[in-house]
């Protein structure tokens, strides 16, 4: 079946679409009340976030827009040390969407939500003219323990930078799909609950967490150097890139330091807990290839805000944020 404008009319077809596809997959006691808004229980500090997903292709090796939208939203909550609990999703469907594909995407969302321990508690669907595109907007809510305080401003002199794995896989996957290039690179899109929970439960005094999405590691760390008023120094030889991604990036003239990921984070950790934190991340799901890649310096104010890469041959390269549009949207 194809989606038509009638599916967005608010009438019978809309009801059928919601019942047949969304409610069935996302079923939980809050959503099933089908009220105008979801009423949720909670105390503590609340973390809220929102994100929109417009990726093409809708399905790609290792994931799809459904998994991506849950991971993206959950990870944003996690980066403040929150426990993600609830998600809302607004679908904007273009006419011509194949309902079988929509079912697969919705199923993938439901499975990923289950994996990430969140409930989808509210939703909306609109249909617009077009040619089979799907866009999803999400909002997420999570709760933070009173004693957890993770923020971009908290980096300290001597802190160590850990990245949770190899870089560029999601970006390379999307580009390869669009270019119809066959390879075995798969997207890294994943919810990072286990890594963050392990660090907090393990008693690590996590100063900063960031997920390394659009703009890549260099953009994320350059922004952190600015907001933390510090210098960040990276060791090029410690930064992991799979050989496939490295070759693919080389072919297209891309730099893996600027390529997007959807299941990687950087953690800024006090030096005396660095090795313990690294071990915890490596034992957590999706963190097995974590590595210490650099450190924070606050001693030289002239260098504050700079991101410096020590290259393999001992050279120094100042890294800036991604310039220009980079490449077409990837999330």
């Amino acid at each position: 079946m194809k989606i038509t404008l009638a599916h967005g009319s608010g009438g019978k077809a809309t009801g059928e679409l919601i019942d047949e596809i969304f409610a069935k997959a996302f079923d939980n006691e809050i959503l099933s009340q089908m009220e105008d808004s979801a009423v949720i229980a909670g105390s503590k500090k609340i973390a809220m976030t929102t994100d929109s997903f417009v990726v093409t292709p809708l399905e790609f090796p290792g994931g799809d827009i459904g998994r991506l939208c849950i991971c993206g939203t959950v990870n944003d909550l996690l980066m403040r040390g929150a426990e993600p609990k609830y998600i809302t999703c607004g679908f904007i469907l273009q006419e011509g969407v194949d309902t079988e594909q929509l079912k697969r995407i919705v199923k993938s969302m439901a499975e990923t939500a289950k994996e990430a321990g969140v409930q989808i508690v509210a939703g909306d669907t609109k249909v617009v003219e077009g040619t089979g595109g799907i866009f999803i907007n999400t909002a997420g809510v999570g709760f933070i323990d009173e004693n957890v305080d993770i923020s971009a401003k908290k980096s300290q002199d001597g802190d160590v930078i850990i990245v949770s794995g190899n870089l560029g896989d999601h970006h390379a996957t999307i580009l390869a799909s669009r270019m119809e290039i066959e390879n075995s690179i798969v997207s890294d899109n994943a919810p990072l609950n286990d890594i963050v929970h392990s660090l907090i439960a393990g008693g690590i005094d996590v100063h900063v967490l960031r997920d390394v999405t659009r703009g890549g590691l260099a953009t994320v760390l350059k922004e952190l150097a600015g907001s933390g008023k510090c210098t960040i120094e990276l060791d090029e030889t410690a930064i992991l890139v799979s050989s496939q991604v490295k070759d693919f990036a080389g072919l297209l003239g891309l730099d893996p330091l600027y390529m997007g990921n959807e299941g990687k984070l950087v953690a800024i950790i006090p030096e005396n807990q660095a090795n313990q934190a690294l071990e915890l991340i490596r034992q957590a799901e999706y963190g097995e290839d974590a590595a210490i890649i650099g450190c924070v310096k606050k001693s030289d104010m002239d260098e504050a805000g700079k991101l410096i890469l020590r290259t393999r041959i001992g050279g120094r390269r100042n890294l800036d944020i991604l310039q220009g549009e980079g490449l077409p949207r990837i999330c």
Binding site: G62, D169, S184, V186, T237, L240, S243, K246
Partner: peptide, 23 residues
């Protein structure tokens, strides 16, 4: 599944001959 085929992006040690050239 994540790709497990990971290598240190720039893992190879700079050869000794290159050290002399750099020097």
């Amino acid at each position: 599944m994540q790709s497990r085929e990971v290598e240190q992006g720039t893992e190879q040690k700079v050869e000794q001959g290159i050290d002399r050239v750099i020097n």
